[in-house]
Each structure stands twice: as structure tokens, then as C-alpha cells.
């Protein structure tokens, strides 16, 4: 579980570095551009960090949901308040939705009998958790690379 926690901290750092890069160039944005960037960045970041938080710790699920929803709401309000306070509502909604979905995927990975997924052996559960976390980290890097590339288009 140590690798999963390190990957989760790395994903949070990527999100905040992207936020500060976007904040330096916020005078260039229009209304529609701010809305589309808020939707893409907040939904993907809340989903991936929700998967990592939920599959790393083994505390009670309601507390995990509380922490994940707080992270999603804070990131949504930060990205929504970049330009003109128009897209705070969209950012908060997408953050809460993405974090609830991420917690659901993490709970299924921790206990595959919830969805009646058959396992070949007992070792396969940890392999499933590592594969899913690595794949979602790659997705987050790809999407943030596309968002930073859109400053030049």
C-alpha cells in the first residue's frame, strides 16, 4: 500500500502545480474557455484521487467519503474561481460527483465480492489495485498535459 499513497500525493501535487501555472495566465481566458477547463480538470482530478484514497486506507467507508468529498469541493472551488466566479457552481458539482464515483471504484477494488467479480487467486486482488492505480495516474498525466497544451492553441 506504500506505492499507492506515494502515487496519490504525486497526483495532488500535479493538480496544484497545474493550478498555479493556470493562475499566472488567467488574464487570457474567456468565459467558455474557463468553463471547459474547469469541467475537464476538476472531474478527472477528483475521480483519480478518490480511487487512491479509497484503496489505500482501511478505515470506515463514511469517513473516506467525507475526506474525498472535501478534497473534490476544495479543488472545484479553486479552479472555478480562476476568472470571474461564474463557474464555481459547475466546478463544485463536478468535484462532488467525481469523488463519489472514485470512492465507489475503490471500495469494489478492496472487496470484489460486492460486485460478484470472480478472482483466480488470493494474490490477484493486490495486482488489481496496483494496475488500476497506475492506469488512473497515467490518465491524469495525459489529461493535464492536454490542458496545458491548450494554452498555446
Amino acid at each position: 500500500m506504500f506505492i499507492v499513497i506515494i502515487l496519490g500525493i504525486f497526483n495532488m501535487l500535479t493538480t496544484f502545480i497545474c493550478y498555479f501555472i493556470l493562475r499566472r495566465k488567467r488574464a487570457l481566458f474567456g468565459d467558455r474557455y474557463a468553463a471547459s477547463i474547469t469541467k475537464a480538470a476538476v472531474s478527472v482530478s477528483a475521480l483519480v484521487v478518490g480511487i487512491h484514497i479509497s484503496s489505500a486506507f482501511t478505515i470506515h467507508p463514511s469517513f473516506i467519503v467525507l475526506c474525498s468529498i472535501m478534497y473534490g469541493g476544495v479543488v472545484g472551488i479553486l479552479f472555478g474561481a480562476l476568472v470571474k466566479f461564474h463557474s464555481i457552481l459547475l466546478g463544485f458539482y463536478q468535484g462532488v460527483l467525481g469523488s463519489i464515483m472514485g470512492v465507489m471504484i475503490g471500495e469494489v477494488l478492496k472487496n470484489p465480492q460486492l460486485c460478484s467479480i470472480p478472482l483466480a487467486s488470493a494474490q490477484q486482488q493486490f495486482v488489481m489495485i496496483y494496475q488500476m492505480c497506475g492506469f488512473s495516474s497515467l490518465l491524469l498525466l495525459f489529461v493535464f498535459m492536454l490542458i496545458l497544451y491548450s494554452l498555446r492553441v
Binding site: S43, V44, L146, I147
Partner: peptide, 13 residues
């Protein structure tokens, strides 16, 4: 380009 970004994030989710 922004339409592509919106469709990509929704398809991922």
C-alpha cells in the same frame, strides 16, 4: 479544441 476536451473528459468518466 475545447469541445474535444469536454468530450474526452466525459467519455473517461
Amino acid at each position: 479544441y475545447q469541445t474535444m476536451l469536454t468530450g474526452l473528459s466525459n467519455g473517461l468518466m
